[in-house]
Every structure is written in structure tokens, then in C-alpha cells.
Design a protein around this nucleic acid. Structure first.
Lengths: 205, 205
DNA sequence: CACACAATCGGACCTCAGTCCGGTTAGGTA
DNA sequence: TACCTAACCGGACTGAGGTCCGATTGTGTG
């Protein structure tokens, strides 16, 4: 029995062999390039493996699934977005009211989707969305803001329901199939938050 | 060029050949039986074809995709639910305030999911959800109720966002992975609607 | 009833995500 | 440097959704 985790290694690992690290990097680069060149839906896992010069088994050992590979390709931008939420300027970052921060959060996520909707959709395929690291962060962020704005509400579930209106699937449908302007989606999100979250705010007692 | 539509025939067709009608019925029955016996996720399209005693090509010509087959199996219950909305008793049917009707609608949908979540999830796979007949009906219903309650809001998009919190995917996650009680989901839906929809109601001017 | 043709049938075939395992190699140890 | 072994590699394989096209059959017409 191995002392090491035999699961996909999504990030650098101190005990990672040199060839393994090199292959991980090559797979990520090839995937990012192919995705942006051809569009996410026109790239198979074999394509990625071939372009990276490795076998398909290696791709799956590293990343576990197509969805996880897409997540890994997105991770840098996700990290920046999370950084802006935790330590950035208001209203996205700390300092604004929960309501304003929620509105800014949704707008930021919608703009993120505007740039990478199909890739995010691929990353959320199946039930992958709910167990992904970014979604866990979003869930926590929205839950805390809701609880702060109204400690009596069921913040956990309200967060899940609000986040449901920011899924890549719905975005792609509204934005690409229905061709609605991004501004209208943002306005609707604002509307939803304004109705859901009370204005009351101030230093908590 | 054929004068008939060369797309999957989901419902009866006056010009449908006798053998075709018989096969459609057999496929539907076999699928319903297998789904309930083994669980939706443990039944392949080949299984359905074999059980119905037809070739796989026939299954796909009739129903077009796995998602569409699942929709067809569900269609009878969907029809009943729609009937209750259009002509049933309040608060689900006409006669109650938009807010009450919306709450009842969500509760009804959640109970429907409680019984058939995995089948509904299969029916909504991919982007299939947005182009399905039931979803079109739900969208229309919720949009009209929202518009009635508040003519100034962006009812179309608000409807999409509210419906997003009633997807099978989210339901399965909350109910099966997180094991939350149905009552809590219903309470959250009520909460969301109460915050989103104003109480004002009465004969419009 | 015989015919013609269009709709239908069915299974071989394709693509693609994901698995498996025998062969290879990195890198620590003596 | 030579060796040993755990980790890694890669491509053949599986299973499932979906497509295709030659063979078949139902059905309106003379």
C-alpha cells in the first residue's frame, strides 16, 4: 500500500517526479492552447494527449476527468477572482455592504462567464460543479454575506439557489442561444439580489 | 425530399405506420420498466433496445436521444402536473395570488423531483433542459405570474433564475449528496419567492 | 391481387471518455 | 557507478451514446 495519495494530482507536489511534473505542465499548456484555438467542444482528450506528446492514460492519471482538466486550465483565473473577493477593493472586496458585495460578486462571475463560458460549462459537467473548489468558495462567500445581511434566513440554501442562476449552463443558453445582452443578465442579477437581500447593514451588535 | 418531418416522432402521428407505433409503445414500456427496476443510471440504450426487441437504430429514430427518451417516459406525469396548474384547484391552479401560486408551483415541482429526480436529471442532460416542452411551460407560467405580481420587473429573466433553483441537478445534490430534508428545500423556495415577489395583488387597474 | 415506393428496421460502425496493466524510468542508496 | 523499487508511462481495451445505410415491410394504387 502506497503512502502517497493515488488520486489525480492537480497541483504541484513536493514528491512529484521530474518527468511527471514536466508532463503535467505540457498537458496543461496543450489543453489551454487547443481549447482556445478550436473551441472547447472540438477538443477530445486524445487530442490533448497527442498534442502534449503523452499517452491518454497519463492525462487521466494527472487530471482524472475532462471536467477536472478544464477546471485546472481555468484555475489561474479563478484564483485571481477569489483574490479580488478576499483582498480586493470594494464593492467586490471587503468594505461594502453584503448586498453591494453580492451584486458585485454576480457581476464579476458573469463577466468571467462572458470570457470563458464554454470552458466553465465543460468544467461543471455532470455533478462536477458541486464538488469543485471554486464552487465551494463561492458557496461559502455567498452564504456568509447572506447570513451577515439577515441572520434569520436559511443562508446556506439561499446561497445554493442564488448561485444556481449563475451556472455556465444557464449563461450559455441565455447569452448564446437567446442572444440576450450581458447587461440585461447583470441587471437581472442585481434585481434578484436587491429583492432577496435586505438593505439593513451596519456594525453588528 | 420528404413531405414529413424527418425528426424523432415523440407523440402519435396520424400517418405513423402500424409497426412504428407498436415499436414506439414497446420501447416506452421497456424503458419505463427498466428505469424503475434498475435505476436510470444502470440502463443503457442498448438495454432498452434489447428489452423492447428492436434495434438500437429504432430507439434513436423514435426518440432522438437518451434525454428525449427520459422525457417521453416522464411525459404522462408532466401532463398531469401541467393540468393541475392550468385547471386545478388553487393555490397551484388559478384563483390564488401570484405569490401563492408560485410557492405552490415550486413545492409541486420539488415533490415531482422527490419521486423522479434521477429520471428528470437524465431528461435534462446537456442543454436538453432549455428546449424541452415541460421547461417551456414552466418558463411561461412563472413569467406570467411574475409579470402579474410586478409588471415593472424583468419577468422573463427572473423566471429563468428562479427556475434555476429547481433543477434536477441541484435537487439531487442537496437531497442525495447533502441529505437535506425535502421540507427544508420547500421552505427555502418559499423564502426565495416571498422575498422576490411583492404581496400586492388584486384586480388590476 | 400484384405492384411500387416510401417509411421503417436493425445492427454494424464511429467517436469519445475513462480504465487497466505490462513495460519503463527516475532517483535514492550503498 | 550499479542497483533496486516505487512511481510513472502509454496505448490497447471497454462501454455507451449516437449515426448510417442496405435490407425489409407496411400501405395506398391500378
Amino acid at each position: 500500500m502506497s503512502t502517497r495519495l493515488d488520486l489525480p494530482l492537480l497541483d504541484g507536489d513536493a514528491h512529484e517526479r521530474a518527468d511527471a511534473a514536466r508532463n503535467r505542465e505540457r498537458i496543461l499548456c496543450s489543453a489551454a492552447r487547443l481549447f482556445s484555438e478550436r473551441g472547447v467542444d472540438c477538443v477530445s482528450m486524445d487530442d490533448v494527449a497527442d498534442a502534449a506528446g503523452v499517452g491518454k492514460g497519463t492525462v487521466f492519471r494527472r487530471f482524472g476527468s475532462r471536467a477536472a482538466l478544464a477546471q485546472a486550465v481555468l484555475s489561474e483565473q479563478e484564483r485571481e477572482f477569489q483574490e479580488a473577493i478576499i483582498r480586493g477593493h470594494p464593492p467586490l472586496g471587503p468594505g461594502a455592504s453584503p448586498r453591494e458585495r453580492l451584486i458585485a460578486f454576480g457581476e464579476g462571475l458573469l463577466e468571467h462567464l462572458e470570457r470563458h463560458a464554454l470552458l466553465v460549462a465543460a468544467a461543471q459537467l455532470g455533478g462536477a460543479r458541486f464538488v469543485s473548489a471554486p464552487y465551494g468558495f463561492y458557496r461559502m462567500h455567498v452564504t456568509l454575506l447572506l447570513r451577515e445581511a439577515d441572520p434569520t434566513c436559511d443562508a446556506e440554501l439561499l446561497a445554493e439557489m442564488l448561485l444556481a442562476s449563475l451556472t455556465a449552463e444557464l449563461f450559455v443558453y441565455l447569452r448564446h442561444a437567446r442572444s440576450l445582452p450581458l447587461q440585461r443578465l447583470e441587471a437581472s442579477w442585481r434585481q434578484l439580489v436587491e429583492r432577496t437581500v435586505p438593505t439593513t447593514y451596519g456594525p453588528r451588535v
